[in-house]
Design a protein around this nucleic acid. Sequence first.
DNA 1: AGTGTACCGTAACGTACGGTACGGCTAGGC
DNA 2: GCCTAGCCGTACCGTACGTTACGGTACACT
Lengths: 242, 242
Amino acid sequence: MAAGLDELVQRSVTEEREAGTAGAVSGPSPRQEQVLDAVLELLAEGTDVLTMSAVARRASCSKETLYKWFGDRDGLLNATVCWQASKVRAGGYDGDRLNTSSLRASLEAFAANWLRVISSRTSIALNRVAISHAASGKSNLGEIVLCNGRFAIGERLKPLLEAARDARLLTFDDTETAFRTFFGLIGRDVQIRLLLGDRLRLSKADIARDAARATQQFLMLHRAAKAPAAPGRTKLNHRKET
Amino acid sequence: MAAGLDELVQRSVTEEREAGTAGAVSGPSPRQEQVLDAVLELLAEGTDVLTMSAVARRASCSKETLYKWFGDRDGLLNATVCWQASKVRAGGYDGDRLNTSSLRASLEAFAANWLRVISSRTSIALNRVAISHAASGKSNLGEIVLCNGRFAIGERLKPLLEAARDARLLTFDDTETAFRTFFGLIGRDVQIRLLLGDRLRLSKADIARDAARATQQFLMLHRAAKAPAAPGRTKLNHRKET
DNA sequence: AGTGTACCGTAACGTACGGTACGGCTAGGC
DNA sequence: GCCTAGCCGTACCGTACGTTACGGTACACT
């Protein structure tokens, strides 16, 4: 994963500029956003109905316009992924002073947000089409999704983790490894099950409970030793899940 | 996920019987296995080259035979998934007496095995095609993969976990939840990254290290309190990863 | 030898979809 | 009023692939 994040985020816009006449340097025009929303809408209804004709119909535009604006089908998908990513971006650590409870709250909020994202119809559909394309190797869509998903949130959380380490609230050697542990504790089998079509409903309550559990477990693994928590002192959330 | 596991495993064989003349009640014939291996071979080379013509060419059989044996493309894929699943099955807990170190060894072996599976070209390709099909909703391929992957290994590990709980080596309320935690600690972001095309190489050493780390973390979270391990007493494997 | 069966190789068919071309409509500038 | 630009709607083209059909071959059985 050598390519930089920003470069990837901007790639589709670049292609759009190369291919078409949308002169605006910054992002898609409102009309183009309507088109991209139509793509997201169709995508949520099933990857197989996402044909260029269907997009044109849904967005009430001509296929000629689609090709003029986005170059080809891949360009349209790239632009869609970036458009969705730009809508999902949420704030990371903003430099607040940390204490035990604010750290826990931040981690829980982060976990809940990520669970919401990966269980959304849009994210599932987008990941599915990106995975299909990754198989063909002809497109960098998977890379874009990865950079705007997994890697973006990693970069967003790391400042918090490191601030917590500086504040002696957490202990770990490698930030990336610590993040991956948290990532695993949050997602577990959820994403692969959803991608494979498992009927798995995450209610708001489920998400809140999972976020709390993941955070609790992460803290147990990485809590700084200055306040050693003997296992069993803070209760583990092993409640049976529905 | 209401359908039983065994039912799903057998489904493609049933279809095969309905559609064709392969009279053998049990599984594919050797010649058919050759065909299925050819499918796996092609799949590993890229999902997009998996056309019926390519399969026929690779397996040195006629398309007519393919359709007679497997019904249609979906039937061929179903049979392939089941064939691969039948090859991957490994033994679970066999009732050995457990102690601390044998439990750790079993968990590590389990984790390493799972990491090997999800990072294999075959598994990646199979999951990709199943995910593509899950998007179209027209096939139960995702269900089959899920039952032979995620759920099968869960059922295989649970006896060990419960035996360990009975032996007072582990403590948890719900076996399924405990397993999901372990699952998350093992896989973390590996599977989604590989599915999305991230170049991620897991050497044997990486796998062994990850399996040990996941096991260590899982034990820290679920070790029975009779031998309380203060955080930091046993060193955490936060070595920087390559 | 004759017949039937299973199979290979390949040609052919139908369709779906990405991509293109073209006619018509609207709006803004002169 | 007229011209140009941009866009809509749609018909059209080429291709790829799933599926079917057919001719030819090897072999078992009688």
